[in-house]
Amino acid sequence: MESFQPVIVAFCCHYCAYTAADMAGSKRLHYPANVKIIRVPCTGKVSALHIMEALRKGADGVYVAGCLDGDCHFRSGNTCATKRVAYVKKLLDEIGIGGERVEMFAMSAGMGEVFARTATDFTEKIRDLGPNPARVGLDKLGCVGAGA
Protein backbone atom coordinates (compact mmCIF):
# COMPACT_ATOMS: atom_id res chain seq x y z
CA MET A 1 0.00 0.00 0.00
CA GLU A 2 3.04 2.31 0.14
CA SER A 3 2.50 3.45 -3.41
CA PHE A 4 -1.13 4.34 -2.77
CA GLN A 5 -1.69 7.96 -3.75
CA PRO A 6 -5.07 9.02 -2.45
CA VAL A 7 -7.07 11.63 -4.35
CA ILE A 8 -8.33 14.34 -2.03
CA VAL A 9 -10.88 16.97 -2.96
CA ALA A 10 -10.83 20.12 -0.84
CA PHE A 11 -13.75 22.55 -1.10
CA CYS A 12 -12.25 25.85 0.02
CA CYS A 13 -14.08 29.11 0.60
CA HIS A 14 -12.78 32.09 -1.35
CA TYR A 15 -12.31 34.41 1.61
CA CYS A 16 -10.44 32.22 4.08
CA ALA A 17 -9.26 28.75 3.13
CA TYR A 18 -8.56 29.46 -0.54
CA THR A 19 -6.65 32.59 0.44
CA ALA A 20 -4.78 30.56 3.07
CA ALA A 21 -3.83 28.10 0.31
CA ASP A 22 -2.45 30.98 -1.75
CA MET A 23 -0.63 32.18 1.34
CA ALA A 24 0.95 28.74 1.70
CA GLY A 25 2.10 29.23 -1.89
CA SER A 26 3.61 32.66 -1.20
CA LYS A 27 5.46 31.21 1.75
CA ARG A 28 6.52 28.17 -0.33
CA LEU A 29 5.19 25.73 2.24
CA HIS A 30 5.13 22.22 0.83
CA TYR A 31 2.17 19.88 1.16
CA PRO A 32 1.14 16.75 -0.74
CA ALA A 33 0.07 17.20 -4.36
CA ASN A 34 -2.81 14.79 -3.70
CA VAL A 35 -5.03 17.68 -2.59
CA LYS A 36 -7.07 19.34 -5.37
CA ILE A 37 -8.89 22.50 -4.42
CA ILE A 38 -12.31 23.51 -5.67
CA ARG A 39 -13.03 27.14 -4.93
CA VAL A 40 -16.47 28.10 -3.62
CA PRO A 41 -17.60 31.54 -2.49
CA CYS A 42 -18.51 30.18 0.95
CA THR A 43 -18.51 26.73 2.51
CA GLY A 44 -22.25 27.22 2.86
CA LYS A 45 -22.34 26.56 -0.88
CA VAL A 46 -21.07 22.99 -0.41
CA SER A 47 -24.01 20.61 -0.26
CA ALA A 48 -24.07 17.02 0.94
CA LEU A 49 -24.48 16.08 -2.68
CA HIS A 50 -21.21 17.73 -3.68
CA ILE A 51 -19.33 15.71 -1.08
CA MET A 52 -21.09 12.45 -1.93
CA GLU A 53 -20.56 12.99 -5.66
CA ALA A 54 -16.85 13.57 -5.10
CA LEU A 55 -16.63 10.24 -3.26
CA ARG A 56 -18.78 8.44 -5.81
CA LYS A 57 -16.71 9.72 -8.70
CA GLY A 58 -13.53 8.44 -7.07
CA ALA A 59 -12.18 10.68 -4.31
CA ASP A 60 -10.58 8.85 -1.41
CA GLY A 61 -11.17 11.73 0.95
CA VAL A 62 -13.01 15.03 0.89
CA TYR A 63 -12.69 18.03 3.13
CA VAL A 64 -14.41 21.34 3.39
CA ALA A 65 -12.30 24.25 4.63
CA GLY A 66 -13.89 27.52 5.68
CA CYS A 67 -13.43 30.51 7.92
CA LEU A 68 -12.91 30.35 11.66
CA ASP A 69 -15.98 30.07 13.81
CA GLY A 70 -17.76 33.42 13.93
CA ASP A 71 -15.53 34.78 11.19
CA CYS A 72 -17.54 33.77 8.11
CA HIS A 73 -17.62 36.46 5.44
CA PHE A 74 -21.28 35.52 4.97
CA ARG A 75 -22.05 35.41 8.70
CA SER A 76 -22.98 31.76 9.15
CA GLY A 77 -22.22 29.82 5.97
CA ASN A 78 -19.47 27.92 7.77
CA THR A 79 -21.81 26.79 10.56
CA CYS A 80 -24.16 25.47 7.92
CA ALA A 81 -21.27 23.61 6.32
CA THR A 82 -20.15 22.16 9.65
CA LYS A 83 -23.63 20.71 10.17
CA ARG A 84 -23.72 19.29 6.66
CA VAL A 85 -20.32 17.67 7.01
CA ALA A 86 -21.42 16.09 10.30
CA TYR A 87 -24.53 14.78 8.54
CA VAL A 88 -22.49 13.32 5.66
CA LYS A 89 -20.07 11.67 8.10
CA LYS A 90 -22.95 9.93 9.84
CA LEU A 91 -24.36 8.82 6.53
CA LEU A 92 -21.00 7.42 5.44
CA ASP A 93 -20.67 5.51 8.70
CA GLU A 94 -24.08 4.01 8.10
CA ILE A 95 -23.34 2.81 4.60
CA GLY A 96 -19.95 1.39 5.58
CA ILE A 97 -17.67 3.80 3.77
CA GLY A 98 -16.60 5.49 6.98
CA GLY A 99 -17.25 9.06 8.06
CA GLU A 100 -13.57 9.68 8.72
CA ARG A 101 -13.03 10.17 4.99
CA VAL A 102 -14.81 13.51 5.21
CA GLU A 103 -13.82 16.40 7.45
CA MET A 104 -14.53 20.06 8.11
CA PHE A 105 -11.65 22.45 8.87
CA ALA A 106 -11.54 26.11 9.80
CA MET A 107 -8.77 28.60 9.19
CA SER A 108 -8.34 32.29 8.55
CA ALA A 109 -6.94 33.83 5.38
CA GLY A 110 -3.56 34.44 7.01
CA MET A 111 -3.05 30.83 8.09
CA GLY A 112 -0.90 29.45 5.28
CA GLU A 113 0.85 27.13 7.72
CA VAL A 114 -2.44 25.72 8.96
CA PHE A 115 -3.55 25.10 5.40
CA ALA A 116 -0.36 23.20 4.56
CA ARG A 117 -0.43 21.21 7.80
CA THR A 118 -4.11 20.34 7.37
CA ALA A 119 -3.52 19.17 3.80
CA THR A 120 -0.56 17.05 4.92
CA ASP A 121 -2.28 15.51 7.94
CA PHE A 122 -5.50 14.74 6.09
CA THR A 123 -3.64 13.15 3.18
CA GLU A 124 -1.67 10.94 5.56
CA LYS A 125 -4.84 9.95 7.37
CA ILE A 126 -6.52 8.92 4.12
CA ARG A 127 -3.37 7.15 2.97
CA ASP A 128 -3.54 5.09 6.16
CA LEU A 129 -7.22 4.35 5.61
CA GLY A 130 -6.51 3.08 2.10
CA PRO A 131 -8.58 3.55 -1.05
CA ASN A 132 -12.19 4.61 -0.88
CA PRO A 133 -14.12 1.28 -0.67
CA ALA A 134 -16.77 2.65 -3.00
CA ARG A 135 -14.13 3.16 -5.64
CA VAL A 136 -12.53 -0.25 -5.04
CA GLY A 137 -15.96 -1.85 -5.36
CA LEU A 138 -16.55 -0.09 -8.65
CA ASP A 139 -13.14 -1.17 -9.88
CA LYS A 140 -13.90 -4.80 -9.07
CA LEU A 141 -17.12 -4.61 -10.98
CA GLY A 142 -15.18 -3.19 -13.88
CA CYS A 143 -17.29 -0.06 -13.85
CA VAL A 144 -14.30 2.25 -13.78
CA GLY A 145 -10.95 1.91 -15.51
CA ALA A 146 -8.47 -0.26 -13.59
CA GLY A 147 -7.36 1.37 -10.35
CA ALA A 148 -3.72 1.57 -9.37
Binding site: V40, C42, G44, K45, S47, H50, F74, S76, G77, C80
Partner: peptide, 9 residues
Protein backbone atom coordinates in the same frame (compact mmCIF):
# COMPACT_ATOMS: atom_id res chain seq x y z
CA UNK B 1 -24.58 38.45 -0.97
CA UNK B 2 -23.83 35.43 -3.15
CA UNK B 3 -22.75 32.85 -0.56
CA UNK B 4 -24.86 30.05 -2.05
CA UNK B 5 -26.04 28.64 1.28
CA UNK B 6 -29.65 28.65 0.05
CA UNK B 7 -28.69 26.87 -3.17
CA UNK B 8 -27.13 23.95 -1.38
CA UNK B 9 -29.91 23.77 1.19
Amino acid sequence: HGCGTCASA
